[in-house]
Amino acid sequence: MSYIDVLKETQNVMTPGSSACQGCGGELILRRVMQIAGNNSVFAVPPGCMAGAGVDGWNFSNGCTAPIHITLLDNTASFMSGVSEMYQRKGRPDVNIVAIAGDGATADCGFQSLSGAAERGTKMLYVCYDNEGYMNTGYQRSSTTSLGSSTSTTPAGAAINGKEQQQKYLPLIMAMHNIEYCATASPSNMADLVAKIQKGLEASKRGFAYLHVFSPCPTGWKFAPDQSIQVARKAVAANLCPIWECEKGVFKLTPNRKPIPIAEFVRGIGKFKKLTEEEIASIQALVDARYALLEKLAAE
């Protein structure tokens, strides 16, 4: 079935009326994950943009048609471990156990519980929508924020020019947990994203599945809301978000041997406005090395 038919024939689990920003990548990703997982699921969404936007219900006017819980910022994977264990114990492996969390709740304070659940092979799908920072609270930096980004805690100032460190590349760290399924995706490649959500759900019946999705954020990154998909597309084209998957240790990379330069990706994005030539070169070197490593991992 084509991804368009999949989306046509599944219901939105999240009702209209959320207060997410225009052009929000996170909401688009969350809606697609939820509708493909369907109502026979238990969802967890920690504090962050999606909980803040009221996906679990607010003011009696919107909500979710499946059971959902706002976990703590740092215990999404461990809370869902308990839910998953109980459903296996009840003889209900059919119920999808799905967490949808931002990069802060995933790569920073939630990382310990995520790593623990992955190492234990908990039967669940964990989806990270990575918008490179704490957007819900006004864009503070996270460990996945790109070098030189101007954020509210790493402003491009006279003494220090934005974030001083390169981003942490979480998907490979997750792949090294020997999990059932690990993949990256982007909302600009919807067919690939839908297929990976389906694969992830399937893998979650056998063990831990992790999906790391690039999530453009017009409000935090300062670009026009109608440019979201374009920004996501360029992130893939520039290899900032290389598309790959790893099934039981076997890597498959979607080739992109003629990437656009990072300089072209950052153009027009407000948070990168004051990037120096050196910083652009440094990000370029990072993404080139990352792609080369992925090519080696995916080599037959």
């Binding site: 703590l72 215990n75 809370f79 471990s81 308990g82 839910v83 459903y87 009840k90």
Partner: peptide, 11 residues
Amino acid sequence: SVVQGAAAAGG
């Protein structure tokens, strides 16, 4: 957190 999740699922 794990026992919280399991208890929320009826355990």
